[in-house]
Simulated scan of single mutants.
Amino acid sequence: MPEDPKLHELDARTLRGLAHPLRMRLLSALRRSGPATASRLAEKLGESSGATSYHLRQLAAYGFVEDAPEHGKGRERWWRAVHQGVRFDESLLQDTDPAVRGAANVFMHEVANWHTQELSTFIGTRHEWSEEWVGASDVSDFTLRLTPDLASELNEKVHALLNGYRAHALPEGSPGAEQVRIHHHVFPMRTD
């Protein structure tokens, strides 16, 4: 796939800096809602400001967040996400270092937990959305019998289709537009 400058390619070092449940939640909050202080993030995520402050500094040390001084007043320290997302290299799950494999597993499980939480939140709040948005949402699953090559081809085509919609993305504040999350999972299953 072509390199996307808005994505950060995870490697063994940066993966260890990100693979923590609170760090992943902090980074996600900054990506979705924009710059914030440790105190605001603590309130939003139900954490202590000491914990959010510490983990934000760790994220900064690994290049995931940076200061956003244009938002600060006085001693307030504002943070912003450096990239719009990360690209996970599956080879990290096979790394020779057990610490890297462990961090990769934590990362993957946190992503799965986050996807489940997002979907559950939508299902629980769908009555708050307009009929038009409810009708435009989709919770589908498909089962196909494919080879690894065909599964890879499917992934590439889905990613290309989704990337094609980036050109149509509207700026924040556009009438009728909302952030839309798309979860895409392709994995093998054994049948009994």
Rank of each mutant, 00 (worst) to 15 (best):
A19N: 04
H20L: 02
L41C: 12
W114E: 14
Q179C: 02
L22W: 03
E66I: 01
F187A: 12
A169H: 02
T116M: 09
L161T: 10
L26G: 12
E70M: 08
D11A: 09
V100Q: 08
V82L: 05
Y54T: 05
E3M: 02
A177V: 12
E156W: 04
T143G: 08
M108F: 05
N113F: 03
L45G: 11
K6N: 10
A167G: 06
G135H: 04
L146T: 08
L56R: 09
A169G: 00
L10N: 06
N163W: 00
L150P: 00
A36G: 09
I182S: 03
V180T: 14
P2C: 00
L18W: 08
S91E: 10
P69S: 07
F88R: 05
A104N: 05
S49C: 02
H8V: 05
K6C: 02
V65I: 03
L27W: 15
H184M: 14
L150W: 01
A51L: 12
H55V: 00
V65Q: 03
D141Q: 12
R75G: 03
Q117N: 06
R166M: 00
L92E: 01
L170A: 15
P175E: 15
H83K: 14
T191L: 15
W79V: 10
K73N: 06
D67V: 01
L18K: 10
P148L: 01
E43T: 15
V100S: 03
D67W: 06
L154W: 07
T14G: 01
D11H: 13
R80C: 02
T37I: 13
E76V: 06
L59I: 09
Y54M: 12
P148I: 01
E70G: 11
R23H: 02
N113Y: 03
G164F: 02
S28V: 02
M108Y: 02
V82H: 06
A99P: 00
A104C: 12
L41E: 10
F107E: 09
E3I: 02
F64P: 06
A104L: 10
E47L: 04
N163K: 04
M108I: 04
E76Q: 15
R190W: 08
A160N: 05
E110G: 01
V100N: 03
L170Y: 00
M108C: 04
V82P: 03
L162I: 13
D138L: 13
R77S: 01
H168W: 06
R31G: 11
R40Q: 15
V82N: 06
R57A: 12
L56T: 06
A36M: 14
L59C: 03
S174E: 14
G17S: 11
E90P: 01
Q117S: 10
S91K: 13
E47T: 08
W133T: 01
L161Q: 01
F107D: 06
